[in-house]
Design a protein around this nucleic acid. Sequence first.
DNA 1: CTGACTGCAAACGTTTTGCACGGTA
DNA 2: TACCGTGCAAAACGTTTGCAGTCAG
Lengths: 133, 133
Amino acid sequence: MLDCTQLLKEYHLKVTPQRIAIVAEIDMKGHINIDDLFNSLKTKFPSISLATIYKNIHAMIDKMFLSEVQIPNEKSVYELTKELHSHLVCKNCKSIEDINLDTSSLLNEVTHKSNFKLEEVSVVFLGLCNECS
Amino acid sequence: MLDCTQLLKEYHLKVTPQRIAIVAEIDMKGHINIDDLFNSLKTKFPSISLATIYKNIHAMIDKMFLSEVQIPNEKSVYELTKELHSHLVCKNCKSIEDINLDTSSLLNEVTHKSNFKLEEVSVVFLGLCNECS
DNA sequence: CTGACTGCAAACGTTTTGCACGGTA
DNA sequence: TACCGTGCAAAACGTTTGCAGTCAG
């Protein structure tokens, strides 16, 4: 299990119960949006504020240990920063799976076809997950 | 040059001066966000309302002849619907280029590695355009 | 002539901000 | 103790809605 306290310290963020809970929840769920995070944390911290969630999510993104994942037509979800990967999104249940892909041929193709100096590529697949299909 | 009136008729939307201007502007710019569209149209229609822009953009998306392009960390832009393609986005000047890619090997890879039934894939490249690099 | 479109203003949902209080280091 | 984080309330922001007047078909 992830040592949230340790992680926060590594990134020079003060360790508070709310922050520990935020990191623990994201780690457990893998991907979660602001509202679901807020609702989950309310059971543990009945008076927690959405402002606190927003402030902390942004602080963690600034420190680069959280990443925002933008999903077409859905609210963004957040995940602990891992090595580069792509996402599979279920159109039905909205669940999200990570997948590691070899994008080298794609990058190669773009490098030859365009004048862009590429830095990142975001690949999102939409479809139906195993359970929904 | 695109016959905007004709296009609107084909998709069974009433032809109004505002709609012609919206389609013409999107066709001219290729990709444009709501604010830029609003500001461009204000020179021609000083009293045009943002509500009109929003309503029309959505009407055209519903008729499938406009498409929304979601750009990480930026406002969505809109384009006339063309055959499936990917986008190159300049991190500096925010310009957008279309590119046609062969995504078959990518789809193949995902089909083998996951249990998802794929329907769509969105690929966005971020980097620097020719002028900015 | 009728229904659809426009522009305005108000409503709405989400995110951000300012501030007083409390907790971490 | 000094500063940072929290929670509340208000503000800001982008988008949507309702409505009265106008226009396209």
